[in-house]
Simulated assay, not measured.
Amino acid sequence: MGEADLVKSRRALLLIDFINPLDFPEAGALAEPALEAARACRHLARAARSRGIPVIYANDNFGRWQSDFPTLVQRLGRRQDTSASIVRLLRPQRGDLTVLKPMHSAFFGTPLDIILDQIGARSVVLAGLATDICVQLTAADAFLRGLKVHVPEDCTAAELPQKKAIALAYMRDILKCDTRPWRSLRWHRDPRTAGT
């Protein structure tokens, strides 16, 4: 896919680390909130796609520099656990984009800056795991780049409710993010704003 193939849009939706084996020590505390966030995010992603807003998966490489995102989606989808349930809710669709991130922020060490520039995005909607780590650090990097940032509180998850609340407050107060639920997005309410 070249630059000419990218959909132009002033907005982009980033789905951060939803496609995840959840096999780290704290995953038990994150699994149920992650599934709840994925259920809300399924509607958000559908709304974005229906309005021509690009959906970008920003996923950890889990320390594997030969990671294959489609294979990871297939492998997790065959399991009988929370990871598989999330994949079924948020399976990538034709035309969605993927960046492989080596660290917490979706911007660090990835082509995300280039993609957003080629799309023409001026604002990003961030959803995913975990609110207080990868989502918050991605929001900080987006803020530093002058992007308008929306982090719908119902489309992110953390291991503890307190961690999520503190992170959302920081993003709202310091990073000037809009943290209202996804249904508050103006383009959700008004289909005439697609791609704007």
Rank of each mutant, 00 (worst) to 15 (best):
Asp113Arg: 02
Ile114Leu: 05
Ile114Tyr: 02
Ile115Lys: 08
Ile115Trp: 10
Leu116Arg: 01
Leu116His: 03
Asp117Trp: 00
Asp117Met: 00
Asp117Pro: 00
Ile119Met: 06
Gly120Ser: 09
Ala121Ser: 13
Ala121Ile: 03
Arg122Cys: 05
Arg122Lys: 11
Ser123Phe: 06
Val124Met: 11
Val124Cys: 12
Val124Lys: 08
Val125Gly: 06
Val125Leu: 08
Val125Ile: 15
Val125Trp: 05
Val125His: 04
Val125Lys: 04
Val125Met: 07
Ala127Cys: 11
Leu129Ser: 02
Leu129Met: 05
Leu129Asn: 05
Ala130Arg: 02
Thr131Trp: 03
Ile133Arg: 03
Ile133Pro: 00
Ile133Gln: 11
Ile133Asp: 03
Cys134His: 06
Val135Met: 10
Val135Cys: 09
Val135His: 09
Val135Tyr: 08
Val135Ser: 11
Val135Thr: 10
Gln136Glu: 13
Ala139Pro: 08
Ala139Cys: 11
Ala139Thr: 09
Ala140Arg: 08
Ala140Ile: 06
Ala140Thr: 05
Ala140Met: 11
Asp141Tyr: 04
Ala142Trp: 01
Ala142Ile: 01
Ala142Arg: 00
Phe143Pro: 01
Leu144Ile: 01
Arg145Trp: 00
Arg145Phe: 03
Arg145Cys: 06
Gly146Asp: 04
Gly146Leu: 02
Leu147Lys: 02
Lys148Ser: 13
Val149Ser: 06
Val149Asp: 05
His150Pro: 01
His150Glu: 07
His150Tyr: 07
Val151Ile: 13
Val151Met: 08
Pro152Asn: 06
Pro152Leu: 12
Glu153Trp: 08
Glu153Phe: 04
Asp154Phe: 12
Thr156Val: 15
Ala157Leu: 03
Ala158Val: 14
Ala158Pro: 07
Glu159His: 04
Leu160Trp: 12
Leu160Pro: 00
Leu160Lys: 12
Leu160Met: 09
Leu160Gln: 11
Leu160Tyr: 08
Pro161Gly: 11
Pro161Thr: 07
Pro161Ala: 10
Gln162Ile: 12
Gln162Met: 10
Gln162Gly: 07
Lys164Met: 08
Ala165Asn: 04
Ala165Ile: 05
Ile166Thr: 15
Ile166Val: 15
Ala167Gly: 11
Ala167His: 12
Ala167Cys: 14
Leu168Met: 10
Leu168Glu: 09
Leu168Thr: 10
Ala169His: 13
Ala169Glu: 14
Ala169Pro: 02
Ala169Val: 12
Tyr170Glu: 13
Met171Ile: 13
Arg172Gln: 15
Arg172Tyr: 14
Arg172Gly: 12
Arg172His: 15
Asp173His: 15
Asp173Met: 14
Asp173Arg: 15
Asp173Glu: 15
Asp173Ala: 15
Ile174Gly: 00
Ile174Trp: 07
Ile174Asp: 02
Leu175Gly: 11
Leu175Pro: 02
Leu175Met: 15
Leu175Tyr: 13
Lys176Arg: 15
Lys176Glu: 13
Cys177Glu: 12
Asp178Val: 13
Asp178Phe: 14
Thr179Glu: 11
Thr179Pro: 10
Arg180Met: 15
Trp182Met: 05
Trp182Val: 06
Arg183Tyr: 12
Leu185Thr: 09
Leu185Ile: 12
Arg186Met: 09
Arg186His: 10
Trp187Gln: 04
Trp187Glu: 09
Trp187Pro: 03
His188Gly: 01
His188Phe: 14
His188Gln: 07
His188Lys: 05
His188Tyr: 13
His188Pro: 03
His188Arg: 09
Arg189Tyr: 03
Arg189Val: 04
